[in-house]
Design a protein around this nucleic acid. Sequence first.
DNA 1: ATAAAATTAGTACATTTGTTCTAAATTATA
DNA 2: TATAATTTAGAACAAATGTACTAATTTTAT
Lengths: 194, 194
Amino acid sequence: MDTKTRILESALKLYNEKGIDATTRHIAAGMGISAGNLHYHFKHTDDIIITLWDQLATEFDQLVSRLGQATEISLDSLHSFYYQSFQTLYKYRFIFLHFVAIGIRIPTIQEHYRSLMQRREKEFKAIFRILIRNGIFRKDIPEAVWTALVRQIFIVSDFWLSNNELTDRLRDKEAAIAFTKQMESMFFPYLSKS
Amino acid sequence: MDTKTRILESALKLYNEKGIDATTRHIAAGMGISAGNLHYHFKHTDDIIITLWDQLATEFDQLVSRLGQATEISLDSLHSFYYQSFQTLYKYRFIFLHFVAIGIRIPTIQEHYRSLMQRREKEFKAIFRILIRNGIFRKDIPEAVWTALVRQIFIVSDFWLSNNELTDRLRDKEAAIAFTKQMESMFFPYLSKS
DNA sequence: ATAAAATTAGTACATTTGTTCTAAATTATA
DNA sequence: TATAATTTAGAACAAATGTACTAATTTTAT
């Protein structure tokens, strides 16, 4: 396999395990190459993080566009979206566990995230409108509360892993189940009574 | 003022501004003392963070116990609790902005947080039961959803600042208002229709 | 006022880190 | 096969950091 790809894999593994302060020397050692060689492929350490961020963003975009293309959006499609999302969140978990530090260190990532969230907010509100029209969501919820729900979804999606890391430390399958249950429960009080 | 207290103030200021990687040299320079002097008062850098964490925990405990002592818990008392909470969250915001990194670096803090959250979960559920009995909260919500709501509250409380830092970057009063509004909206769909 | 204790500044050191440089080795190309 | 391009390892460097140490200064106690 490509050395560049192998570096990204080793970096992802180590960042997820040891956090954002894992060094290029450790990343290189972890895959049995020299630090000099690593810096031949990635001149700056941050380039590795930027590349991993781009991978994450791409994988997420695919999930979102697949959700948007669904012929008829149901609660189930929303739930399966969250289950699939978690696989990506978990794969790149070091980003979410150290999100602010990364944003400070690499402002372009923060800027990218910011514009991404603005786009997503509109997409989610559109989905909510459909679910209201279809009688799945309640019709008596003020607009401001839907706006707050969108932000709530973003916060819980992005930081559930951090909370898990500080408390239960669930891994893999167990974590996925707990995350999905958390998201499902979030929607419960917004469902219309039928 | 006590040099030890002044170090804590300078550290808090710098950690909030520059993040968890602010150095003892910078903290000392920021208040016009030598690094040697700083290490006379705090042998290890982490001792500063631990002390700040203890301060935060103490201030929060006072808020929670004041809420628990209220003669009759209403929605208003819950809202004013969140408004007051935010002052403390904001004062020690570096902790929440770098929560996982701190937890990894100082395991005693993580352990303390974990047991704190277990205690708080019970306290919150007790409050919810009162609000249900008083007809303020809906009676048709399954127990599992209340449990999820508690976790939701913890996640949004602890990481709203991180989300804000990555998106809107609201400060002071504006941040407090947005946070409180977010928390209020969270409870809206759980209110009984009266 | 003097001795003792506490505080402070400044130097020094070992370690770590990102990165550069050089030369060797490997791979591709003609 | 000979040459050029790419890849790799390893040494070297400068900067930063935590913290230990020393000597001076300030404060406190007698």
